[in-house]
Amino acid sequence: MHRRSLNMARNLDDDLPAQHVAMLAAMQRMRLGLLAGDVTEARAARDVLQGLHAAHIAIEETELIPQLPAAARWPAKVYLAEHAKLAAMLGEWRDTLARQPARLDQPEQRLALLDASLLMQHLLEHHLEREEKGLLIETRR
């Protein structure tokens, strides 16, 4: 392995788990904003999550997924489909939050949005776990 490739592999080994932590933190920030009825905060957190997600998949889809072995635990199409699904969900949440006032005073409104956000949270958690147990390990070999 060339020195540049070795350094890039080390950087990815460090950067991607840190990106996972940042993405989960942004998701939590969005949900806490919803819980508090602070839609402005939820929008800002969703925007951060979208930016992190875009940067994250750009690295994975150019640097890691092409290196995924044929005998990988999960094929590339699984990671790509999850990336696309998360991107679509982030777009749907942009639209959902844009339709809301800056502040939600009714607890029922806050709870409904918080409950609706669980699907994206679960997909994000599941996807990042899959990457950590599959993609990141299998492309290190």
Rank of each mutant, 00 (worst) to 15 (best):
Val21Lys: 15
Gly134Gln: 11
Ala26His: 01
Ala116Pro: 11
Ala71Asn: 13
Leu128Tyr: 11
Leu64Gly: 01
His126Gln: 05
Arg10Asn: 12
Trp74Val: 11
Trp93Glu: 11
Arg46Pro: 00
Pro69Glu: 03
His20Glu: 14
Pro17His: 04
Val21Asn: 09
Pro101Val: 04
Leu32Ser: 08
Asp115Gln: 08
Gly33Cys: 01
Leu64Ile: 11
Asp115Ile: 02
Leu32Asp: 10
Ala25Ser: 12
Asp47Tyr: 02
Pro66Trp: 01
Leu124Gln: 05
Gln121Met: 09
Val48Thr: 12
Asp95Gly: 09
Ala44Arg: 06
Glu132Tyr: 05
Leu136Phe: 09
Gln100Gly: 02
Ser5Thr: 08
Ile137Arg: 13
Arg141Gln: 09
Ala54Arg: 04
Leu6Ala: 09
Ala9Asp: 07
Arg73His: 13
Asp105Cys: 06
Glu92Gly: 09
Ala116Leu: 12
Val48Arg: 14
His2Gly: 04
Ala72Pro: 05
His20Lys: 02
Leu97Asn: 14
Ala102Ser: 09
Leu113Cys: 13
Leu118Lys: 03
Gln106Val: 15
Arg10Tyr: 04
Thr96Val: 14
Glu108Leu: 07
Ala18Phe: 09
Leu80Asp: 00
Leu35Lys: 07
Leu123Asp: 04
His56Pro: 06
Asp115Phe: 02
Arg46Asp: 03
Leu104Cys: 10
Ala54Asp: 05
Asp38Ile: 00
Asp15Tyr: 15
Met30Lys: 11
Glu92Ile: 14
Leu136Lys: 05
Asp15His: 15
Lys77Glu: 15
Ala36Ser: 05
Asp95His: 13
His20Gln: 08
Leu97Tyr: 12
Leu52Thr: 12
Trp93Ile: 12
Pro107Lys: 07
His122Ile: 08
Leu118Tyr: 08
Leu68Ile: 03
Val39Asn: 01
Leu35Arg: 11
Leu52Phe: 10
Arg99Asn: 07
Pro75Leu: 03
Met8Thr: 03
Ser5Phe: 08
Glu129Leu: 10
Leu104Val: 10
Leu6Val: 13
Ser5Met: 12
Ala112Cys: 13
Ala26Cys: 02
Leu111Ser: 06
Thr96Gly: 10
His53Arg: 00
Ala9Trp: 01
Lys133Glu: 11
Val48Ala: 03
Ala42Leu: 07
His83Tyr: 06
Leu64Arg: 01
Pro69Asn: 14
Ala88Tyr: 07
